[in-house]
């Protein structure tokens, strides 16, 4: 009989880091086999698998997070590195400034207003409604906005992640249906609406789509911070 107590110290980075990396590598292989079908999004598959393991094993999220904290740290490093494709593709913005700026403002406002309206119509609690408002901005920004407007930052973080996954999974199908094939437009829309997770998806479509997604993500982080308090006031919610 194996003494599980003896193994308790193995939990942490030793267990969860290889688990996460191997599950993601497997999910990525599946994703490529399925010709990058958005529904087989490797981030989504990995989160689903890890969540099932944690819940069935009764492992607290905190234990897991501490084990893979280095990956979370590297997310920040990768965001810094997004400057490289942005630099390489900056010239592609020439002549597109007005359409991209319009796409940014319209997409950002649509996300906020439709999200709030549907949540209010669906009788979500006031705290949920406020936590939902900034969800299209990247997590660090959306959590900060949530705190400032009286939402629940931790709930906002989760709603932000869900927005990223929905955009990364449904977004490419929607763009296909509309016959939008220009990588600049596809990437930009994905980045504006569904931040980093959809940016990761856009990079799997190609570097141009990924760069425009990065740009959309950054610009909408700024715009959402400005727009959310205004929209809430106009809708009589703050």
């Amino acid at each position: 009989m194996i003494d599980l107590e003896k193994l308790s110290h193995v939990q942490g980075a030793l267990l969860w880091l290889p688990c996460t990396i191997l599950l993601f590598a497997g999910s990525s292989a599946l994703y490529r086999r399925l010709n990058k079908a958005p529904i087989a999004n490797p981030t989504l598959l990995t989160i689903a698998a890890i969540a099932m393991i944690l819940v069935s094993g009764g492992v607290p999220y905190k234990t897991y997070f501490e084990g893979v904290a280095v990956l979370h740290y590297l997310l920040g490093t990768a965001v810094v590195a997004l400057a490289l494709p942005l630099y390489r593709n900056a010239r592609r913005l020439q002549g597109r400034g007005i359409s991209m700026a319009s796409a940014l403002v319209a997409g950002s406002l649509t996300s906020i207003v439709v999200g709030l309206s549907v949540a209010i119509l669906g009788h979500a609690s006031a705290s949920t409604v406020l936590s939902l408002a900034p969800k299209s901005a990247t997590a660090a920004v959306s959590m900060e906005i949530s705190r400032l407007i009286g939402g629940e930052p931790a709930v906002t973080a989760t709603l932000t992640i869900l927005t990223g996954i929905i955009g990364a999974v449904a977004g490419p199908y929607v763009l296909d249906m509309l016959s939008i094939r220009a990588p600049e437009a596809r990437g930009f829309a994905l980045g504006v609406v569904s931040h980093g997770i959809a940016t990761a998806r856009a990079f799997t479509e190609g570097e141009v789509a990924g760069s425009f997604a990065s740009l959309g993500m950054v610009l909408n982080a700024i715009l959402t911070a400005l727009a959310v308090p205004l929209v809430l006031r106009l809708m009589g919610y703050a």
Partner: peptide
Amino acid sequence: DGLAIAAALVASTVAAVIVSGVIAASGA
């Protein structure tokens, strides 16, 4: 709040991708 949240997230994300994508594509 699951149903309201799911509806709000899906509707707003899909609507925003449509609006943003169509406008962004109009420039190319």
